[in-house]
Each structure stands twice: as C-alpha cells, then as structure tokens.
C-alpha cells in the first residue's frame, strides 16, 4: 500500500474530497466510496463501456482510469443525467423503443449517447453505430438502441427549435 493522495472531484454537481490510494480505479471510487452505482463493471479492459461516465466533457471508461488521473475533474454519471422528475429524452426514448433488456449496459449506453448527441445533434444511423461502438450490449442487438437514440435526437431537436 502506498501513500494516500488528496483527491478533489465534482460528481454530478456535488463537490467530493477524500484521501485515496493512487491505484484506486475511478469506477470503485464512484461505486464503493461515493455509492454511485449506476456505472457498472463489465470487462475491466475498456471494451464494454458499462462503466462510461463523462469527465470534463469527454466520454471516459472509468474502469481503466485511476481516480488520481481524474483529480480535479468534473464528472457526470447516469445519476446526473436525469432522475424521476427531470428525465433526459434518452431515458424516455430507451423505454419507449425497447432499447434495453437486462439494463446492465444501459447507464453507460445512455451516458455515452448523451455525449454523442451533444457532439453531433443530427447523427446518421452510421454515425450512431460508430459513435456507440465503445459500448457493448449483449441483449438487444443494438437495433432498438439505435432507434432510441434517433428518437431522442429528434425530440431534442424539436424542443430546441420550439425554444428558439
């Protein structure tokens, strides 16, 4: 065990400060230290994306980042994307279009999709499939995930137009 480091994070808008071993992985910080259990662990090797969170505006797989690397970062997890009173259009669209089955990949999938739609509000199907290729789903075969993201994009664009 090595010397603990002083870490500061902002997670879903809340400031967090604690001492952690340098080897502590961000996913464990979130899940075990901060009890934020939306992000999941599926592979340990950055392939599956179940642990996807947003750090400083970028999609990141939190299972292969040390919390020390995230020090000072601004982190959003599925819990920060929307809750019972302020559902994100993606959360509604995934339910509406059957974009999930067992639900294990869903938090990472929606977190990544939210970032994708920020980067590209009008993605083609091909751009969605490419942009989501870092997130594995074993249940749905992706067809309804793509559909859900397309529906959410349309919904968000319509809302934006209405607001303008």
């Amino acid at each position: 065990m090595s010397k603990k480091m002083h870490i500061k994070l902002k997670v879903n808008g809340k400031d967090e400060e604690f001492l952690a071993e340098p080897r502590e992985l961000l996913i464990y910080t979130l899940r075990e230290r901060l009890n934020i259990t939306g992000p999941h662990i599926g592979c340990d090797t950055s392939h599956c994306g179940a642990c996807t969170v947003t750090i400083n505006g970028k999609s990141v797989k939190s299972c292969t980042m040390f919390v020390a690397q995230a020090d000072g970062g601004d982190i959003t997890t599925i819990e920060g994307i929307g809750g019972p009173d302020d559902l994100h259009p993606l959360q509604e669209a995934f339910k509406e279009h059957h974009g999930l089955q067992c639900g294990f990949c869903t938090p990472g999938m929606i977190t990544r999709a939210a970032k994708l739609l920020e980067e590209n509000p009008n993605p083609t199907e091909e751009e969605i499939r490419f942009g989501m290729a870092g997130n594995i789903c074993r249940c749905t075969g992706y067809q309804n995930i793509v559909k859900s993201i397309q529906a959410a994009a349309a919904e968000m664009n319509a809302a934006k137009e209405a607001a303008e």
Partner: peptide, 9 residues
C-alpha cells in the same frame, strides 16, 4: 425500464 434507465437497478 424506469429504474434501469436512471441507474437505479
């Protein structure tokens, strides 16, 4: 789906 999409599984 409500709980799964909100990270509350």
């Amino acid at each position: 789906d409500a709980r799964f999409t909100q990270g509350k599984g």
